[in-house]
Design a protein around this nucleic acid. Sequence first.
DNA 1: ACCTGAACACCGTTCAAGT
DNA 2: ACCTGAACACCGTTCAAGT
Lengths: 200, 200
Amino acid sequence: MTLDRDLIVRTALRLLDDVGLEKLSLRRLAKELDVHATALYWHFASKQELLDAMGRAMVQQVVAEGPLPRTWQEWLAHLARAQRQAVRSHRDGALLMMTARPTAEHQVEYLDQLVGRLLEAGFTAESAAAAFIAVSNFAIGAAFAEQQGRDLGEEALDDLILRSGEHPGVSGIVAAAQDLDATFERGLAWLLAGMRAELG
Amino acid sequence: MTLDRDLIVRTALRLLDDVGLEKLSLRRLAKELDVHATALYWHFASKQELLDAMGRAMVQQVVAEGPLPRTWQEWLAHLARAQRQAVRSHRDGALLMMTARPTAEHQVEYLDQLVGRLLEAGFTAESAAAAFIAVSNFAIGAAFAEQQGRDLGEEALDDLILRSGEHPGVSGIVAAAQDLDATFERGLAWLLAGMRAELG
DNA sequence: ACCTGAACACCGTTCAAGT
DNA sequence: ACCTGAACACCGTTCAAGT
């Protein structure tokens, strides 16, 4: 079993799920691969480059799957769900996405088809780009909050529930945190409805 | 000049702007405070607790400022801008926000007033919570992308511009990345318009 | 080409000891 | 109560040396 970039990245992502990003060290990863830590430096110039590759693998893995959508709404919804799903696909996915530097070519052809649909539907070039970015940011922000809120569930959520009495607004938040999928779809629907309204 | 939690947090946030989160070590921070690294352990149980306090200070600093808004749209817009501004207020702010565990009481009374306005405007309890969460996630996702894209600007952006010829969709993205404030406001407006449409 | 082994300059954290 | 000082078990990275 000889070492190569692909094997290293796959092993690193598996290890990430086991121990979390904080404890994912080159030494630990090397032990998993039955190799000295310094051997990794022949394949990656630095740990940062390995993290970049891990982030890339994480997003590419998800965006490709599923049938291609038809309407522009379905395109944007598919993008949002895929992006959220990518971040959710690994422990500390949001943290990894933040740590890994973005690859430029991300998925240019996907973006191109999506923008094409938007232009056909009446979007201007600027609003098409803004739509892509808005949906993207919303999806990643949602996944971000979700993964961050995981350790909140233990003690802080109980604290929030205690405050529900004096603060009526809080109880709705607690309920929404219980059904993250529905909350996500609601926000996505609002974004798309706002765009639809602007189109006329 | 005796040490206390407040001074430590303020110094840590200043140091964060100087060196970035990756190089923000307790030893470095201690040197800044003319103290041994282990002295910090009397005030914070762990580095994680210090990071939590830093995250808390970062958001509280911003959400309080400015006059209180009137309509529910203005409330949500104010929330979105404040949240984005908080993340932008320090280097690696998004990374810090992800690393720091959320404080439950965040700003309960602010949330309460906001939810109150939404209910008056015709939102159900569930949709009011979803609205708060959607706007919040969108804002943080935007700040996230912005801070991540900063080091993209150098080489990867040039690479993207090169591809603009073959891929027409890309050029719009490049333009949108040039005016992040406008792109943010556009997305926010879509979200609010979608909510308005649902109300009737 | 691909990996080992030793070494360097760091980390967070614990704990006894000082004042 | 508040801090020092030594020590422990780690880090990422460089570089010569092996095969």
